[in-house]
C-alpha cells in the first residue's frame, strides 16, 4: 500500500513538562506530564485509573467527575498541574476493604445504571452531594446531578439509587459513612 512519507517521532521534545504529585484514593502517586495535560488524561493514561470516563469536550456530560479535596469537579476541565499536591478520589476509591460504598450498592439495588459509562461520574457527584446534604429531597438530587448526563436510564432509578445510599448512610448499619 502506498502511503505518505513517514517522519520519525521525538526529534524534538514537546513541553514544558512538570512532575505532578497527588494523593489518589489515599495513596501517593506521581508522574511527569506536559503542563497542558488534562487531569482526566493524567488519571486515565499516566495513573491507569480508567474508571473515570470522557464523554464530551465542553464540560457538559460529567462522565469525568471526581472529588478534588472532597469537592466534585469535572476532571476534563482542570489541568493535572492544578491538582499538584492535592487529594483526589475516583470511582476506584469508593470500595474499601472489599466492601462496596452505599452509593455503589444503591446503583446496583435500584438498577441505576445500564451501559455503565456515566456511572462513575454520576456516583462521584452523588457522594459529594451526600457529604454536603445527607438527606436530600428528590428535587435537590435532580438539581445536584443535572450536570451529569445519562442516555440510558431516564434518571428515575438514579434518583432512587441516591436515595437508597442516603438512607443506608443515615441508618444504623450505614454509620454515616462519607
Amino acid at each position: 500500500m502506498v502511503l505518505t512519507e513517514m517522519t520519525s517521532a521525538g526529534d524534538e521534545e514537546t513541553g514544558p513538562f512538570m512532575n505532578v504529585h497527588v494523593t489518589v484514593n489515599g495513596a501517593p502517586r506521581s508522574a511527569t506530564v506536559e503542563t497542558r495535560t488534562l487531569l482526566v488524561h493524567f488519571l486515565r493514561e499516566n495513573l491507569s485509573l480508567t474508571g473515570t470516563h470522557i464523554g464530551c469536550d465542553t464540560t457538559n456530560c460529567g462522565a469525568c467527575t471526581i472529588l478534588l479535596d472532597g469537592k466534585a469537579v469535572k476532571s476534563c476541565t482542570i489541568l493535572a498541574v492544578q491538582a499538584d499536591g492535592r487529594e483526589l478520589r475516583t470511582v476506584e476509591g469508593l470500595e474499601t476493604d472489599g466492601k462496596l460504598h452505599p452509593i455503589q450498592e444503591g446503583f446496583i439495588e435500584e438498577h441505576g445504571l445500564q451501559c455503565g459509562f456515566c456511572t462513575p461520574g454520576m456516583m462521584m457527584c452523588s457522594v459529594a452531594l451526600l457529604q454536603k446534604n445527607p438527606h436530600p429531597t428528590e428535587e435537590q438530587i435532580r438539581r445536584a446531578i443535572s450536570g451529569n448526563l445519562c442516555r440510558c436510564t431516564g434518571y428515575v432509578n438514579i434518583v432512587k439509587a441516591i436515595q437508597h445510599a442516603a438512607n443506608k448512610m443515615a441508618g444504623p448499619s450505614g454509620g454515616g459513612r462519607p
Binding site: G51, V91, E92, L94, L100, F107, L113, G116, M123
Partner: peptide
C-alpha cells in the same frame, strides 16, 4: 453491575 460500579468496565 459488579464491574461497572467499581470503574472496572473495559471500554
Amino acid at each position: 453491575d459488579a464491574r461497572f460500579v467499581r470503574g472496572k468496565g473495559n471500554y
